[in-house]
Amino acid sequence: MSGGHEHERRSDAELVRAINAGDRRAFEALYHRHRDWVASLAMRFTGDREAALDVLQETFLYLVRKSPGLELEGRLTSLLWPVVKHLSIAHNRKRRREPAVDPMAMPVRGVDDPPPGLDDPREALAGLVGGLPEAQREVLLMRYVDGMALDEIAAALGRPLGTVKSRLHHALARLRGDPRTKKYFER
């Protein structure tokens, strides 16, 4: 199932150009390079394994349908991120469930759960991130979970770079200002 060593060394943009020319191996290489990330992101948005696999299929079929004529300047993640998000939201709607009010929601503590302690920063992190406004949380997760650069995030969201920086600034300030999560800013 390998796309071959030659393809594995090529950039996303080079593979996309090869896909435009009908290169099946290039598609395989691109698929295997981004499959786990797409599946993980779809799982984050849908919260459902089967829906995530459906979104995985539809995301790559969407991509290949765009060829020939698909143009890519940077990494594929900024192109795929909004596709995965929109397909996931569409899936949630098709399931006749309330669309995920907040598709980036973190695990939420129950009202009877004890408050996160100072000795468990990961628990505290989940609570704090879960309490961030969606727009801030979205940018935070794109940056530190998906590993996207700020300009890639801006491209994926269709927002100005300044807006992305501002959202990330507020999210980080919230985490840094809380004694339970300030360790994430210590060197």
Binding site: D36, A39, S40, A42, M43, R44, R49, A52, L53, M106, P107, P121, R122, L125, A126, V129, L140, L141, Y144, V145, G147, L172, L175, R176, K183, Y184, F185, E186, R187
Partner: peptide, 17 residues
């Protein structure tokens, strides 16, 4: 932030099908 933030966020969202 240091690398621990990314590591812990990824651990919290590690549910990959």
């Amino acid at each position: 932030p240091n690398e621990a933030l990314a590591e812990d966020l990824r651990a919290l969202l590690a549910d990959r099908p």
